[in-house]
Design a protein around this nucleic acid. Structure first.
Lengths: 330, 330
DNA sequence: ATGAAAGCGCTAACAC
DNA sequence: GTGTTAGCGCTTTCAT
């Protein structure tokens, strides 16, 4: 195992010089720097993380608590994690996986000094995990928007704006009676923040633009088919659907296409773009930028670790995944 | 921040005594142990991971390289990760997420002494990542079975046996012409080890039991419907399907049910049990024990870190997810 | 059964 | 611009 002392000796300098070459925290002459870098390469030296961390009191590791829970879309979670990981690595940080749904795990990692900060995914409206977060010695960032968000750093997709955007688009298209097919029942029952906000935005804007709107929870998979049938039976005037449920979307679309009807029912989906763009029957997709969300969370956490505090929650604005049907010149 | 010195002082003992109380590496009198434990609790002491790791030259962290790649079933990956994480935590270890598909990342973490071992998921038949693994200073365990598996520790589901088991079951049921609907085209093209092994076992045993069997790659989602149509058109004698593709399964099942036929086509699925058990039209499910696989991988890695070497690859035997349709008394 | 002390490999004052 | 050195908080010999 090569140590910093080996490198120093090989380069004919002191160990602090080697250290400063690595950190860039003080000026080094061009010549010395080159000798040191050559020595590091020759010896294929890697600094020891634990020693560095003990001396510097920081780890270059972010804790990540991701949920593995019923109804949570694993695809979205994976993408958020991928985005966070990518961003973290881009800033020379690693990610330690913390057991899901376990406030104690976060505390343990924080107190053992294993991580410089924690990123917490899929936070619920009243999440039991947020309580202990405030008196942690390290910063934390939530992806999600809990009730007690005031004193916490939060990053999320702007679900409320997405709901409004969908209502506007449906109204523009001339619809009068629409429905929101949302998250699975167990997610709605938990009052997951995003589901509530989406609904609120959709209903509010629908009212403003004169849209009659109803909301249905929707199970993933083939079960979605029944919901569609129930909906069409109960509200036959419905001419368009706003679907926020990637796992149900193909089934809903398939069901609508097989249901012969005078005017086909239109679908606007909120989903990761690549999952919904090619589902036949979906006319518009509001992208759920999962990877970007993870990256934003990591970026904000890194900023917090540096001591920067954001002013309020950071909400990613909704966007349609492809250009609207109107001419691009508008 | 409380240190071991604070605890020692509070308990009126030396630092080493506190250390030995924690590690249990030498005998401590009942009385002393209690005083020390009391002091640790009073001060709510957590040992500092980096200091411990620097002194002991081990981290209690497992590196985990999980793929986030086209065609890989995210649900299965998540379950494997969950199983590994659970097992690791049960043995007081943590998990560091390593960037996917990046041999350099594994090396970096190993050489920086960030992890005591690495667990590598979804290894392909000829995986570029396995080359550098052998001359790492720390042990590694593959979940998957690459070609050059001889010198590497591998854990996997026994896909070949699962293929045979499916063929046997279909033959028992009286079928004569069957088909395997497998992984998405891009996975098969990569010659992912498991896909090959499943096919091999299925075809070999089919031949032995007099089954005419064909293999079709199968895209996830609605695209699967077309494959079913193609198959039924090309081989109308087909009376049963063996499906290994969770994401396509509901679509395949739905398609078969809508295709009115004299005798319905039977489906045996290989899938995580909870995903397939309740899909209508699926008669038998061979469970893909994803979580167990992750746990087995972690367990084997922990054993390897302790210095134990297994003799050959560890293959989890396939099992039907629920009791066969025959009377339980048989 | 317990204590003293020498490191582990690095960072960051404090020199010059 | 570079070197010296005192820690960082633990584990683990070596003593007793």
């Amino acid at each position: 195992m090569t140590t910093i002392a080996d490198v120093a000796q090989a380069a004919g300098v002191s160990i602090s010089t080697v250290s400063y070459v690595m950190s860039g925290k003080r000026a080094i002459s061009q010549e010395t720097r080159e000798r040191v870098e050559q020595a590091m390469a020759d010896l294929s030296y890697s600094p020891q993380a634990s020693a560095r961390s003990l001396a510097s009191r920081s780890t270059s590791i972010l804790g990540l608590q991701a949920p593995i829970r019923a109804g949570v879309d694993v695809h979205v979670v994976m993408q958020v994690v991928a985005g966070a990981l990518k961003e973290a690595r881009a800033h020379h940080h690693d990610i330690l996986l913390l057991t899901s749904d376990d406030a104690a795990g976060v505390e343990r990692a924080a107190r053992a000094g294993m991580v410089d900060g924690v990123l917490i995914l899929d936070v619920e409206t009243s999440d039991p995990r947020v309580g202990s977060l405030a008196d942690l010695s390290i910063p934390s960032v939530l992806i999600g928007l809990p009730d007690a968000a005031d004193q916490l750093i939060c990053v999320d997709f702007d679900f409320e704006a997405a709901g409004r955007l969908a209502a506007e688009r449906l109204a523009e298209r001339g619809h009068r009676t629409v429905a929101l097919l949302g998250a699975p029942p167990q997610v709605q029952a938990r009052h997951t923040s995003y589901s509530d906000r989406l609904t609120r935005g959709f209903l509010a804007r629908s009212r403003e633009v004169g849209l009659a709107a109803t909301v249905y929870p929707c199970p993933a998979g083939p079960g979605a088919t029944e919901v569609v049938d129930t909906l069409l039976a109960g509200a036959p005037a419905t001419t368009a659907l706003f679907v926020h449920n990637e796992a149900a979307l193909p089934f809903i679309a398939a069901r609508l296409m097989s249901t012969a009807s005078a005017s086909p029912i239109e679908i606007v989906a909120l989903s990761p773009a690549e999952l919904a763009l090619h589902v036949p029957g979906v006319s518009d997709v509001i992208d759920l930028p999962a990877e970007e969300l993870g990256a934003a969370g990591a970026r904000t956490l890194l900023a917090a670790i540096r001591g920067e505090r954001p002013l309020g929650p950071e909400l990613l604005a909704p966007r349609f995944a492809h250009a609207p049907a109107e001419p691009a010149t508008v």
